[in-house]
Amino acid sequence: MSEHSQPGSRPGVIHDLGYRHYDGVRDGTATIARTLFVTGLRHAYGLGRSGKSKVMPFLLLGMSVMPALIVVGVVVLTGGSSLPVSYADYTNQTQLLVSLFAAAQAPVLFSRDLRHRSIVLYFARPLAAPVFALVRWLSLTVAVWLFMSVPTLLLYLGALLSGLDKSDQTSALLKAVVLQVLLAMLIAGIAGLISSVSLRRGFAVVGSVMALIVLTGVITAVQAISAEEDADAVATAVGLFSPWSLYNGLADAWDAGVETFVPVDGAWPLAYALVALLLVAGCLLGLVARFRKVGSR
């Protein structure tokens, strides 16, 4: 122990049989951030938390995997020539479950520390407030992406099992994965920002549901009506205002197996991609600003 090199410098050392100092390695900031990321990802699925906090995420995950299993069963048994639903469209069809998962689990990562003020204990440690905010967002992004990718991978395995063309399936899968990553970044940013501002879990969940589910419903309705009325520009432009319509529009433009009411073409795909990236950046700036402010209180 270091006491030997400093004889007599620590008062009470001779009697100190109880307290032991720590002489070992201390991790750098990057390792601490990685630990926080992994913990956050586990917590999003209720792992390392109480038993009942695992119910909601795994129930939702089960519900989103079930149709994929049925589809796989049917395709393998009947030997169809293609999957009845594309990878990207499967995520779109289960959008209610994905949005619910994000809305329910974002408060775990973004509200809890603020509400119970344990955030102060994090900020008294090496990680700075902006890094903390970004790592939390990354945890939720990966959690949401995993939620979408598990059924997608099941479908892919089923397609390969039933002997569908491997290269076609793989390119469709990769397109879907890229789109899902972008969607997960959007959803995690929006739900995270809402949860970091409204600290009561109920309000946070309702806020995220409004932003992710109700708003998307309204936009889909507006798109359907304007397509019916032949107001194509309106139908496409309105799609810029929800993460799901952005996802669908980009999937349509990229030929990833989703059909929107009006084809997204011309300069629109670029606009969709730009808006999606700006929205992600905006959410991140908002999160960083929010945690900075809390950190200096």
């Binding site: 938390r49 109480s50 906090s53 520390d113 119970h116 003020r117 344990s118 102060v120 204990l121 008294a124």
Partner: peptide, 16 residues
């Protein structure tokens, strides 16, 4: 912050 510990005045413990 790597070398110090901090015990705040207010409540800061998650209940669950």
């Amino acid at each position: 912050r790597r070398l110090v510990g901090y015990m705040p005045e207010h409540d800061c413990l998650p209940p669950d």
